[in-house]
Design a protein around this nucleic acid. Structure first.
Lengths: 226, 226
DNA sequence: AGGTACGAAATCGTATACGATCACTATCAC
DNA sequence: GTGATAGTGATCGTATACGATTTCGTACCT
């Protein structure tokens, strides 16, 4: 449940190309390669014990997902933390998560609700211990539970891409606003209640969007008042 | 305005890889390669006068966009017209177009409205001459005008991807429901009125979504009653 | 006759090699 | 001393080559 992997074109497991893709992606998502890190084909190829061709392919795939930027005849670097990009990503995520939640809502059974609630409780505890990394992962777990039976895999894929994009800049703390995080937990609870009571799709979508866009607003407010 | 090209990672123009990407994509979008067509690396490479490596890269990119499917050690084929896929794509498009419209609305000036109206008028004429291909292209033009100043390029990119995906199966006529197309034109006009009068974002988004999801519904209804 | 097993052709996946392009530095002219 | 310029090293982009895998046709067996 913790894996944020998953992509539509699951691309031939076992191939060197796939291996390189997973390896580099993992290093980016877990923060070994931080934004701005220069990805040199030859070095990575040597590291992984493969030739440069599959590595190149992996890098281009990561580029398509927005995790790295690529410049002709210069090379690839881990995608940056440009605030504008952050805004774009969060805004898009707000929309696709909202849609995914609304579409999934009718298919969420009480057992799943209970599991989601348990995850949310863990998040609450994280707040006391101030553990942003774990908090972020649990936040994804929470939504993963809701999206388990999402009827539209395309939308789900867009959600995952957004998560990966954000993960690449998780290491920098600028995203984490403690006060905001506390609200987040409450919004989760409200969302669960709406789903339980079978609220209409429109209402659920609105609530799910708010949850993400409020985080964005909090960040923007913080960015403007240093 | 007619070009539906544009992708986020604009990828080094002039490279053989980019050249191959554009060429194959064009053949798919314009219907030279129809769904199910087998894309053989060697053949394409010979056609384009390049080696297989850049062609392979191009194909993988197209795979990431959903235009082709790829199977390990077997090869690539132009993505099919599976009704389920169609549903997924239209549903997703409904959502991202809705968002793009709502975000763009406040930035659309009267001149742009006028241009959009002119395009819509052309579409009306297309209905009389029964020209589905032109109609579809004009439909994209119409929305392109609205999205000219879309403040979120990520969302705009998702819209373009959806369009490309649909274009790959345009040649098959199963999508075109004449009665539905007529409604479409009216909905365009309504949408323009909402934008002109400065309706709130929620209302505009709803109208923009309806426009796409109603087309989907019409298709589904037709598919169920043969 | 039908089905299975084998073999050849086609195609893919990756390694290696080499030319092209770019960044960086040291040198030279002014 | 400062600017431009040529040289050098590093890295990318692509071609070619070859082993691996699949597919398809054919022959053989039941």
């Amino acid at each position: 449940m913790t894996d944020t992997a998953t992509d539509l074109p699951a691309a031939t497991p076992g191939s060197k190309s796939e291996q390189a893709y997973q390896a580099v992606k993992a290093r980016i998502v877990e923060g070994t390669y931080t934004p701005g890190y220069r990805l040199v084909l030859g070095s990575i190829a040597k590291d992984l014990g493969v030739s440069v061709v599959p590595v190149r392919e992996a890098i281009r795939r990561l580029e398509a997902e927005g995790l790295v930027t690529f410049e002709r005849n210069v090379g690839a670097t881990v995608a940056g933390i440009d605030p504008t990009e952050y805004l774009y990503t969060m805004q898009t995520l707000s929309i696709v998560e909202g849609a995914a939640t609304a579409l999934s809502a009718p298919l969420i059974d009480p057992a799943a609700i209970a599991r989601a609630r348990a995850v949310n409780q863990e998040m609450r505890e994280c707040l006391d211990h101030f553990d942003p990394v774990r908090f972020t992962r649990l936040n994804q777990d929470f939504h993963s539970v809701l999206f388990e039976h999402c009827p539209n895999p395309h939308i789900l894929d867009l959600v995952h891409r957004g998560w990966n994009r954000l993960a690449s800049l998780r290491s920098s703390t600028f995203r984490f606003v403690p006060g905001r995080a506390r609200d987040s937990v409450e919004e989760h609870e409200n969302l669960l209640k709406l789903i339980e009571t079978g609220a209409d799709a429109e209402q659920i979508e609105k609530a799910a969007r708010l949850h993400r866009s409020a985080t964005l607003d909090a960040y923007l407010a913080q960015a403007n008042n240093p």
